[in-house]
Write a protein that binds this DNA or RNA. Sequence first.
DNA 1: GCATATCATGGTACCCATAACATATATGCT
DNA 2: AGCATATATGTTATGGGTACCATGATATGC
Lengths: 332, 332
Amino acid sequence: MATIRDVAKRAGVAPITVSRVVNNSGYVSDKTRIRVEQAIEELGYIPNMLGPSLRFKQTNTLALILTDITNPFWTTVARGAEDAASESQYNLILCNTDESEEKQNQYTQMLLRRQTDGILLVPASSTPQAVELLQRQKVPTVILDRRVPGVEIDEVRSDSEVGGYLATRHLVEMEHRHVALLTGPENVSTAKDRADGFCRALNEFHLGCPPEFIQWGKFTQESGYEATKRLLQFDPRPTALVAGNNFIAIGAMTALNEAGYRVPEDMAIVAFDDLPVALTIEPFFTVVVQPAYEMGYQATQLLISRLAGEHEEGCTKIILSPELVIRRSTGA
Amino acid sequence: MATIRDVAKRAGVAPITVSRVVNNSGYVSDKTRIRVEQAIEELGYIPNMLGPSLRFKQTNTLALILTDITNPFWTTVARGAEDAASESQYNLILCNTDESEEKQNQYTQMLLRRQTDGILLVPASSTPQAVELLQRQKVPTVILDRRVPGVEIDEVRSDSEVGGYLATRHLVEMEHRHVALLTGPENVSTAKDRADGFCRALNEFHLGCPPEFIQWGKFTQESGYEATKRLLQFDPRPTALVAGNNFIAIGAMTALNEAGYRVPEDMAIVAFDDLPVALTIEPFFTVVVQPAYEMGYQATQLLISRLAGEHEEGCTKIILSPELVIRRSTGA
DNA sequence: GCATATCATGGTACCCATAACATATATGCT
DNA sequence: AGCATATATGTTATGGGTACCATGATATGC
């Protein structure tokens, strides 16, 4: 409500003097400072950021566009991003696309209209539209977790190919000969990369990689459920599953329970992404753990260093290593 | 990058004409419109919201300040809020306080500096500071889920007292005579209200409400774990637990498993807040379901109707009803 | 005693989009 | 023809904070 001019009038000074008091910049005598502080107190003055933001083209705002805010994996990423942002006095806006490209493009537009300083993007798909728009508008952007082929841009992700490989190799080493993969959409790089790692491991052991054992779908529980029901029809049926994320793994479990299959006796499962401790009574799934918090934190640090104008040349790719944690769902 | 003036120059018109084309307002001839649209296209012009926001004191932004973004209950609330906001062309900023009053006050300040149009607040505690600041600055605010005593303000919440009552009565009806409550901090109204409902049910059956059977703590897994370990020392030990939220319930389960107690045979549990389907293999906990999505959605609608200047008089309290869903953790 | 540095305060312009008002032409109707 | 209305475009002022520059007062140095 109250503006810097109201405060200035009340304290009998010029607006710029109030500004100096508020920002502790330049010279102000103690006598004046006290008068100004009193006026601020009396009027309940809170500076309006929009003025300076408009003038100096800096909003101190970053945005994280992610695909599913109900998935603990992403809220953990968001935590990391949030922490890194607030350490550098940036505020973070969270945008949830529900894996929809349309929503993603809407949010991108909105964030540009708001003059967001920088953007962390988890692309809903491999199409480069949104990224190209951001680059054209010269808004520093870091791509998180997923690749967008054909664009030169900063990236922070975990190595999904290696993750897929580790998961699959573990199952093969547990003597499984028919391993299937339940994963996300083919046009999402992490789904694709996990499939590549899956095939690499199978080929390494000369087991081949039958296409019907790779079930493309969505990163949802329903998708995992449906894909598992399909796989159970096959002959020979798979004896082990690699689930492309935590939700898919849950869906697979539900389908297996319904059909009377026990895990790990009748079917082993490795899942991507651990469930948070706060939500698990006792950890059951063997998982490929991706460093979610780290990913958010490092991506944000990278983005902020770009905004500070550091290391201009080229673009940076940070690839974090996933880790296999063996638990009961693979019979260990 | 490009401003409305750049577009105007390129199209050979005045800035206001570009504005009219962009906003589809006022009269523009087809010939001019086409020239302007072409210039917009060529320059990749995206309007800068900050100008109008500054001028008209409207940012089309709402904020949801919540206490724990990793809890699916709150992300569901956020979903509801997000949906209601975008239906009315508002954008929603998510702020996570981690139950810390300091963080809450920091965010409140920040949102005021950003001229946020309205605020949805889940208060970290019962102290009225933040709410009073918001009221003083005349920013329309709706309090979500928790009460703040002593302030007149719009509220949307579910009836925690009734929830506590339903949970406890169910346990008593299952012949439990020693029922304990694990809940959050005493200065959070939902924790307090759940305890009140808990006592009401016990008193109704003349079972009394021993204070040591009410374990105040935090809404976290660790807190539930610790409190359960304490309760297991008591003689007579409780045979049934009411967990103040989903995280506490998980912590209790962990402690019980470790100590070799089976649920529901040795200990029955009713929890507040269901776990999302996508995260549960098969629902196990008997729960008091609170309408999370509804709460976010209705609170946001209420806030938006305030912003539109509707029904000025007094303040509105919307109290939603919780529902008991009986499952295996109480032996049903 | 005067030059120079330090301290203290203020005026003006600027960022961008658009409401409000002004102007000008074209069309319709009696 | 003459007036009212519709169509089309433009000018100016506005909002809040602060960088930049200007000015004046006081202190310090030699």
